[in-house]
Design a protein around this nucleic acid. Structure first.
Lengths: 193, 193
DNA sequence: CGAAAATTTGACATGACTCAACTGGAGTGG
DNA sequence: CCACTCCAGTTGAGTCATGTCAAATTTTCG
């Protein structure tokens, strides 16, 4: 069960078997059902969450009541609102599961303990923040400079095979277009093959 | 000269006069002329830069050769590509000055020294990263959910009075619209008054 | 002052949205 | 297991927002 997490955490810096034990003692396993919330707007994010199995969506509801998917979470991804987690303030995001999803989670206090006992982990999590930041700026410039079909193509590259696991209208919400427009984009892309 | 920087750094945690001296010894003053680059694509970001006076623009050039302004820098703002600075990799951004601009800068090595001598600064810079990240996700969802006139209104709120200092087509580039569209938005907004 | 750049305005094209109707498949209850 | 409902997806028609191209006007700056 721990293997995917350990592999993820050793990505930049390998862990000794003692360190692996520390990790295992600080994370908690949890299973969520399809449609169950992992996080709701107004909650304080108590855990950083690592996905072992399943798919999640992180979304925001705008002034007009419309949902916008900010991120999909798949196996081997970290999800959770970093800002809310780090500052212990209420989140503006919702996270729920699109399939039955298995995760491991760590609280802020336990993460501090982890940093103390395995200092190199600090670097790892700083890199996670950095990568989240970069992903966000990339997506921003892609939104500013690209048409809907181009963004769809980028999306397919970034999340390969996700279209088999996630409903079409969810992908449309991620791309910031209507399901109808996405449907037309897909049929035109199919034609061109 | 140092006052704006010290005020900025004491925002979350006050500094003693000894600490102020450390800060003053580690930052370097620099003056840039209008149109001069502070950073160019391909460079490694050697400094984090704090603006004392002036206006800068941070922009990216997309595949189609079009410029997209990512951020304007004004007095009391930090600019620079954090990712490139922290990882010492080449940047994909350009930063240049829209007016004569005075800044103070710190290298990565000196920032480490600062952390050592004034540990509370670590918190300050982590908060800067966090805020940059939040600003980016905010702008992303605003781009996904709002029309051009709404985004223009948000922009004016975020950067008050900037329209007196920055050319119209620059603002258009920030908003991801054409200068013509911005011109029409402005004339319609004026009508409504 | 004069050239170059920025802004404005108009006409038209186009991409994406809305509304509506239709189709097909998944899940549910009898 | 079938019939029914409901939701997702598709398709079409019309509309609207924004882009494109072009010309006229204003501003900036050497």
């Amino acid at each position: 069960m721990w293997e995917p997490l350990i592999r993820n955490l050793s990505k930049y810096v390998p862990l000794t078997s003692d360190e692996v034990k520390v990790v295992e003692s600080l994370f908690t396993f949890k299973k969520y059902r399809k449609r169950q919330y992992i996080l709701q707007e107004g909650d304080v994010t108590r855990y950083e969450t690592f996905i072992l199995k399943g798919v999640t969506r992180t979304y925001q509801v705008d002034d007009k009541g419309q949902e916008h998917i900010v991120q999909f979470g798949l196996e081997d991804w970290w999800i959770g609102d970093l800002f809310s987690f780090l500052t212990e303030t209420p989140t503006t995001y919702n996270i729920d599961c699109l399939e039955e999803t298995e995760v491991v989670q760590i609280t802020k206090a336990d993460l501090e303990t982890l940093y103390e006992k395995v200092p190199k982990m600090e670097r790892h999590f700083r890199l996670i923040i950095q990568n989240a930041f970069i992903a966000s700026t990339r997506r921003l410039s892609s939104n500013l400079s690209k048409s809907a079909p181009e963004r769809y193509e980028d999306f397919i590259k970034k999340y390969p095979q996700i279209d088999q696991r996630v409903a079409n209208h969810q992908i449309a919400s991620y791309l910031g277009i209507t399901p109808q427009t996405l449907s037309r984009i897909r049929s035109q892309a199919a034609e061109r093959q």
